[in-house]
Design a binder for these strands. Structure first.
Lengths: 343, 343
DNA sequence: CTGAAAGCGCTTACAG
DNA sequence: CTGAAAGCGCTTACAG
């Protein structure tokens, strides 16, 4: 604790503490001489503004919180990384709060968390970002937040990826490989993104003049285990699908495990692919083909949007169309889990 | 923001704000009548103490920070969960700070982070917890911290697992299966735990009257890729080892991948096992045998130790010998990646 | 058992 | 361009 305060600086520099305050906040209306003098003393004394004093005076805490539960640990990990990067650059602290989506008292717990920490703003990760009673509470409390996920649903700003396009392109890729019996594992029905992705899958099949075989579309919940279970169902179908696309990688890994357990060769007898491109895709064997979602970029962007909003700053000029829309595109990453179907 | 303050409560209850302060801090020397009256008003008005005001007055911020880099994401995830659980119970906020161990300015970056957030205390995850220049800086700044990892090295309290015992037991398990050519992948040499684990491995072999084949002990760095690389070396040895024990699961997953790539059947032709029992062990095929480290418990314990230290509270009576020593034992979890060697 | 005063480190009006 | 006063919401001595 470098307990040198604004008062010490003021005394040493022979100015009022208000003037010191002006300098450290980069306000206008300070003469160059005064500013230089104050800066010199600040450096000499090693003064750092105590964020707590500022927080109390401004009634803004200077930190934000990440609220998440954990459907896909790899996803959260990358998102967190991007958010942290931005927070670090903007000198914001990041609080972590683990929730469980299923808790009946979730909204109340989060309300208590906010009261306890006084975080200025919140970043909401799906499925929390699609939970209307939570958003209602935040609106009522007048808490600033940003949602990770599709835009149209719910209130508040959001940053997300183009899920329907991702699924559309991945399905097209499988069609190009000449797959005909393509199965699809849905995400959690509570999450908007799941419906987006499903839409892209159906669209691609439709555009190719195929009809969707509804027995090959099964429910999943974005978790590893739900991928295992879905694959169990799909791989007992006759004819067996030659390719399975899962709405996220976490489930795709589950599908892969199920295939191995049944002695089905991947990709020779079954192509498997997912969406997200989380780190586990390159740890399992064979490495999974996936649509790369710029997860860290999305996290970074979400944090920046929130912080700028809190500080009343306008957003910087968007460098790309994606920065403007806050909807990011995915990129197909072909690895070893997909190939043309056996004849 | 429920902007009802201690002053509002005091006025409404007809007492001084100091008395209200006494009540909310559960201090002695308040008459039952007064306490009841104040409590009634608190509930009526929905008063919650503003942590910022308290923080400034007490010069303690009421949050702690988790400093980590990311050798094994699955490990960090579980640790974080335990820490968060404790923070939530103790009404502490948890800041997150991602560092990169290799950054030449790391110590300085962390110093800046502390100044910016005023976290009361820090939880240090390996390899940070073994970094002496970092510990020196924290000691100099008089920052309270707790280390995750072995005890003897470095200053400050620590919570860890019994790595040598874990490796000892796992090696014994492999010996019981009649493995003779057992290879070992070391962890990062900067981390104390790596040396512990190595010691346990050697001890078990020694106790069984075997000499260690030094060509079967190779360097790893606790990362997935280092596991892949180490396995590449080991699996080209003649005679090939029949079992590989990696110092953590993240590397064991890499070993498994390498075995698959070479067409080596696991476990029939090669047994593989690791230490930690992170979630990926049950996502890869076959599921990995591992030593379960109570990671979340360790995280919880570390947070509790730190928080009690900050609040000057004594630790609660230890319920188990492990709680007393703060060194936790592992448990062997046999899965599908180990079996007796082929004849 | 209770309270008036001063203070934590900063900022917001306001005045000059 | 600069500063004196009051205040953010709480706590720490101290006095009674």
């Amino acid at each position: 604790m470098s307990s040198v305060t604004i008062n010490d600086v003021a005394r040493q520099a022979g100015v009022s503490k208000k003037t010191v305050s002006r300098v450290i906040n980069n306000e206008a209306n300070v003469s160059v001489d005064t500013r230089d003098k104050v800066m010199a003393v600040i450096n000499e004394l090693g003064f750092k503004r105590n964020p707590l004093g500022m927080a109390l005076a401004k009634n803004r805490s200077l930190f934000i919180a990440l609220l998440a539960d954990n459907p896909s640990p790899g996803y959260l990990q990358k998102l967190q990384k991007g958010i942290l990067q931005c927070c670090s650059e903007e000198h914001m602290g990041l609080f972590l709060y683990d929730c469980s989506y299923r808790s009946p008292t979730l909204v109340h717990e989060i309300e208590e968390f906010i009261d306890n920490t006084l975080a200025d703003g919140l970043i909401l990760v799906p499925p929390l970002s699609d939970k209307q009673d939570l958003l209602d509470m935040l609106d009522r409390k007048n808490v600033c937040y940003i949602r990770i996920g599709p835009k149209d649903q719910g209130s508040g700003d959001s940053v997300g990826f183009n899920g329907s396009k991702a699924a559309f392109e991945m399905t097209n890729y499988l069609l190009q490989l000449q797959h005909t019996d393509i199965a699809f594992v849905l995400g959690h029905p509570d999450q908007q993104s799941s419906h987006r992705v499903e839409k892209g899958f159906r669209q691609a099949l439709h555009d190719a003049g195929k009809t969707v075989n509804e027995t090959l579309v099964v429910q999943g919940y974005y978790t590893y285990q739900s991928g295992v279970d879905a694959a169990g169902v799909l791989l007992s179908r006759t004819p067996r699908p030659t390719a399975i696309l899962a709405a996220n990688d976490e489930m795709a890994v589950g599908v892969l495990y199920a295939a191995h357990s049944l002695g089905i060769k991947v990709p020779e007898e079954l192509s498997i692919c997912g969406i997200d491109d989380i780190s586990i895709t390159t740890k399992v064997w064979p490495n999974l083909t996936s649509m790369r979602q710029p997860i860290a970029t999305i996290g970074y962007r979400a944090a920046l949007l929130l912080i700028n909003k809190l500080q009343g700053k306008p957003m910087p000029e968007p460098l790309t169309p994606e920065d403007q829309s806050n909807i990011y595109d995915c990129e197909l990453i072909v690895r070893d889990s997909t190939c043309p179907p056996a004849r």
